[in-house]
Computed example of a mutant assay.
Amino acid sequence: MDTLFALDRQLGNIVRTTEQPIVGQMRLTWWYEALEKLDHAPPPAQPLLRALAGLISEGRVAGRDLATMTEGWEVLLDRERTAADTLTQFAHLRGATLFRAATALLGEDDPQVAQAGALWAFADLAANVSQEAIRDQATAAALDLADTVFGARWRGARPIGALALDAYMAAAGRGFANGPRRAARTVRFRMIGR
């Protein structure tokens, strides 16, 4: 799990530290190609790719699937694209892909996993973007997904669902990070799936 989220942080850092979109696109393309190659070639001498290659060699995730996350991050490099459908594309390519890979590592699945990943990506974007319009759109999108994600009882993948629940509570302004209210709600979810 740490390795998957390290990949997400690596891709996010590319977007965060890029001043010229073309440079960011080139860096993300390098990661896309490197991740795809992990399915059929040994990894280069890059620590994160070596760690991911271990997961891929176990057959738990595929490099081509992880490469999809780069496409999600690339959406944010286009400063002109702030429409809700663009943010939805980002959330699904980044968050849904990440959460599906995480549930594969757990050997579990749940029908809400992809939507939970999108909710998490929206909430994470809202918490970390400086542009107010994008922050407002991402927050609204996260809150809109809550009924879909948490409307039915989770049978499996509860640790992954708990990540989405915490992100939802942050976006909704419910409790403080690491506070008793959010901790109690997360424990309840992990125990009963609601």
Rank of each mutant, 00 (worst) to 15 (best):
G161E: 06
P111K: 09
T148R: 07
L93Y: 09
A126C: 14
A141I: 03
G179Y: 04
A138W: 02
R174I: 15
A177Y: 14
A83E: 14
R158W: 09
A172Q: 08
A142H: 05
R135K: 08
L125Q: 03
G179M: 01
A102Q: 04
L87W: 03
Q89T: 14
R94N: 15
T103R: 01
A127H: 11
L77H: 06
L145S: 05
L119D: 05
G173R: 08
A162M: 09
F176Y: 14
A126Q: 06
A177T: 14
G173N: 11
A141F: 05
A138P: 15
L87N: 00
P159F: 12
D136E: 14
Y168G: 02
Q112G: 11
D109R: 04
A104Y: 04
A152F: 05
Q131C: 12
R174V: 13
L87V: 10
R94D: 07
G95R: 04
S130P: 09
W154D: 01
R181G: 10
G161D: 08
A133F: 15
A104S: 14
E80I: 10
D144P: 02
A104P: 05
E132C: 12
F150I: 06
Q112P: 08
D85G: 04
A157S: 12
Q131G: 14
L105N: 03
L98H: 02
Q112E: 10
D147N: 15
R185C: 11
F150L: 09
T186N: 14
A146E: 08
H92K: 13
L106C: 07
G95V: 03
A96R: 01
A116K: 03
L106Q: 01
L143N: 00
G151V: 04
F90V: 05
G117E: 02
A164L: 06
D144N: 07
L119K: 08
G156P: 04
A84W: 12
R182E: 10
V149F: 14
W120G: 01
A146C: 08
G179K: 01
T139I: 06
N128W: 07
A116H: 10
L93P: 00
G156N: 10
T86C: 13
G156R: 03
A152L: 08
E80L: 10
G161L: 07
R94Q: 10
G175D: 10
A141E: 02
F122W: 10
A91W: 04
G151W: 04
F176W: 15
A183S: 09
D109K: 02
A172K: 04
V187A: 11
S130Q: 11
N178H: 07
T88Y: 08
H92P: 08
A127V: 05
R79T: 13
A157Q: 01
A184W: 09
Q131R: 11
F122V: 02
E108R: 00
A91N: 07
L98E: 00
A177M: 11
L105G: 05
P180K: 00
L145A: 10
A171F: 06
L93Q: 13
R135S: 11
D124Q: 15
E80F: 12
L77A: 08
A138Q: 02
T86H: 12
I134E: 10
